[in-house]
Computed example of a mutant assay.
Amino acid sequence: MKKVNIYFNRWFSVAFHYMNLIRNNEDGIPFQIFATHPDPQHMSLQGADVAGTEPALKGIEYVQFCVDFCRRNEIDIFIPRLHMLDIALHAPMFDAIGTKVLVCRDLDLLKSIMDKGRFYENVTDKGIMIIPDYHVVRTAEQFKVAYQDLVAKGHRVCFKPTETEGGLGFRIIDNDRIPLQELFGHVTPLISFDEAYRILSGEAFFPDLMVMELLEGYEYSIDCLADENGKLLAAVPRRKAGGRLRLMEHIPELELIAARVAETYKIPFNFNIQMKYSGTTPKLLEINPRMSGGLHISCLSGINFPYLAVKSALGGEVQPAGFADNVLASHVEQPLIMRINGESAVHDTVN
Rank of each mutant, 00 (worst) to 15 (best):
E253C: 13
E286Q: 09
L314N: 11
H347A: 11
S301M: 04
K3A: 14
G59S: 12
T349Q: 12
I6V: 15
V346H: 11
R105E: 09
L89F: 08
C158H: 00
M19Q: 13
R246N: 14
E216K: 04
G117M: 03
D39W: 12
A51Y: 08
F16T: 12
L328Y: 05
I6N: 10
E61D: 15
K231L: 09
L225T: 02
A226R: 00
F69Q: 07
R23L: 13
E263S: 15
E333Q: 08
K3T: 14
F269T: 01
V151P: 02
L285S: 03
E26V: 14
A204G: 03
Q181T: 15
M19P: 05
M1V: 14
D325I: 11
I22M: 08
V236P: 01
S312C: 11
L200H: 10
N73W: 14
N122P: 00
R138W: 05
R339F: 09
G59M: 06
F143G: 08
Y307C: 02
A51N: 04
A259G: 12
T139P: 07
P306F: 00
Y7R: 02
I303W: 00
E26T: 15
E165C: 13
N341T: 14
Y220C: 03
K276Y: 08
P237L: 03
I130H: 06
F8W: 13
R198I: 07
G185T: 15
L180M: 10
R198V: 06
M93F: 13
E54S: 11
R118V: 13
V14S: 12
D208F: 05
R239V: 12
P92L: 05
G230D: 04
T164G: 05
L109T: 07
T164F: 01
Y197T: 03
I79P: 02
P335V: 09
Y18Q: 09
K160E: 04
G279E: 10
P161V: 08
I251E: 10
S298V: 10
H42G: 11
A262R: 06
I251N: 06
P268C: 07
G293I: 05
S278P: 02
H42V: 10
L21V: 15
S292N: 06
A258S: 07
K160I: 06
I29S: 02
T139L: 09
H37A: 03
K153P: 01
R246F: 14
S292T: 03
F65L: 12
L102K: 00
E219S: 09
L102H: 01
G302L: 07
F69S: 10
D174V: 09
G293M: 11
F78I: 07
G243H: 05
M84V: 15
A196D: 07
S13K: 12
E216G: 04
F69M: 13
L82G: 01
G166W: 06
M1K: 04
Y307S: 01
A88V: 14
N229Q: 14
R138K: 13
R177F: 00
G98Y: 10
A196L: 08
S221H: 02
M129P: 00
H135I: 00
R239I: 08
E263M: 07
Y147N: 06
H186W: 01
F65Q: 08
Q64C: 07
G185N: 13
R105S: 01
F206P: 08
